[in-house]
């Protein structure tokens, strides 16, 4: 497989673009977009990632098979996030029907402390619980 020689100027342009986008990420963090906070931040991050992958990592100049491989890793990442979210998005549904105690990660820290039999960090609880 041949890689065309990419002129240094291209790398510099991409580098500049990445810097600008980084500054933009910081800038938009000061504005409250409400629901769109994550969307805006992720959009910028994805654009940056695409620039790095396509130019710095030469994917743009590579065989289609490598596109497939890079693409499938993105798909797999989505699978991981997506199926994990099936848990997080639906975890409280039964709560409203009164069928399930509160998720324990929302228990206040003081209660957690009290639950430990002794010691300040509950080390004994940890070692006998297994």
């Amino acid at each position: 497989m041949e890689h065309p020689v990419v002129p240094v100027s291209t790398y510099l342009k991409i580098f500049a673009a990445l810097m600008v986008l980084t500054a933009l990420t910081v800038a938009v963090a000061f504005i409250d977009w409400g629901f769109f906070n994550d969307v805006v931040a992720m959009t910028i991050a994805v654009i940056k990632a695409l620039l790095v992958v396509s130019v710095f990592m030469h994917l743009k100049y590579s065989a289609r098979l490598l596109w497939l491989i890079a693409g499938s890793s993105v798909v797999w990442f989505m699978v991981m996030v997506g199926l994990t979210l099936t848990d997080y998005r639906s975890r409280d549904w039964l709560l409203h029907e009164g069928m399930r105690p509160e998720p324990w990660h929302s228990v206040p820290a003081e209660v957690m402390q009290d639950a430990a039999p002794s010691g300040h960090n509950g080390a004994e609880a940890g070692s006998t619980g297994h």
Binding site: W76, V79, L83, T86, D87, R89, S90, W93, L94, H105
Partner: peptide, 22 residues
């Protein structure tokens, strides 16, 4: 094989609905 991992977590605090999918 990548879509089934939640079957290790049926009795964690994983959502019952996610458990059904897994």
């Amino acid at each position: 094989g990548f879509f089934v991992w939640g079957h290790h977590m049926f009795v964690s605090s994983q959502s019952t609905y996610a458990g059904m999918i897994f």
